[in-house]
């Protein structure tokens, strides 16, 4: 329907004749599902890590299967399985507790599947970081009469964060790229919007290049931000090391 050879400025313009605004919105949706998927994934990972360290045996076993399986399987397969089976199950669960039944929209389903996959990786990253906190620090905290919750908040988290940060940064970069996989189950984030725009305008090469530019700028910005964050978090540490 649309004339094939649009000049690039028109092709990428914002407004009704170009795809600039569609791609920009789609990029925001990519960031949105990544941020929420990442957030819930880390929450899941934190729970998983604590369960693996201090939980009862059956929980440790369940979590062991979860992290091993989910890290050994291709993300694409997991996302397809979870998208159809997982959202189905979630819906039944929600209706079971009287909250539904309702139709999960693409946004929530995408966040859900990304978070479950991300959670498996985050569990391992956080478990390793928490285990690396020197036991003496925890004992000192207990000796001072801190409750377990307080100790966790004041000692464990600040001590393990710098250790976990490089791993967590990696996970963030992975989720921004994995989010492209939900295009395959039909949620219009950046990758699918790119396909739609390329398919209608027939300018495959230009549109794909632009989309990659957007992904690249997301990832380069993130690398820079995480670098600064790490410097910030490690401030106290490097001082201590220098003094020792």
């Amino acid at each position: 329907m649309i004339a094939a050879a649009l000049p690039i400025t028109t092709l990428l313009s914002f407004g009704d004749s170009g795809y600039g605004d569609e791609l920009a919105w789609a990029a925001l949706r990519t960031i949105e599902i990544s941020v929420f998927g990442y957030g819930f994934g880390i929450a899941l990972g934190l729970g998983g890590a604590l369960g693996k360290i201090a939980g009862p045996l059956w929980l440790k076993r369940v979590l062991g299967i979860y992290t091993t399986l989910f890290r050994a399987l291709p993300e694409l397969i997991l996302i397809m399985l979870l998208y159809y089976a997982g959202t189905d199950g979630l819906n039944r669960l929600l209706s079971g507790v009287g909250l539904g039944p309702f139709q999960l929209n693409g946004l929530i389903a995408s966040i859900f599947v990304l978070a479950i996959v991300q959670g498996a990786y985050a569990t391992e990253v956080l478990r390793a970081a928490i285990s690396a906190v020197p036991i003496g620090q925890l004992e000192a905290a207990s000796a001072m009469g801190m409750s377990a919750a307080l100790r966790f908040r004041r000692i464990t988290v600040p001590a393990m964060l710098p250790l976990a940060l490089p791993g967590l940064a990696n996970l963030w970069l992975n989720i921004t790229k994995d989010s492209a996989l939900v295009s395959i189950v039909g949620y219009t984030e950046l990758a699918l919007a790119t396909q739609q725009a390329a398919g209608v305008s027939k300018q495959y090469f230009v549109i794909y290049l632009v989309a990659q530019g957007i992904y690249l700028s997301i990832s380069l910005t993130s690398v820079w931000l995480f670098g600064r964050l790490e410097k910030n978090l490690r401030r106290g540490q490097s001082l201590a090391r220098a003094a020792a």
Binding site: G15, D16, S17, G186, T188, G199, V200
Partner: peptide
């Protein structure tokens, strides 16, 4: 289906 299938269903440049 999310892909262009003109003239039945497709997304125009205004989304």
């Amino acid at each position: 289906a999310a892909e262009p299938y003109a003239p039945f269903t497709s997304k125009d440049a205004s989304g």
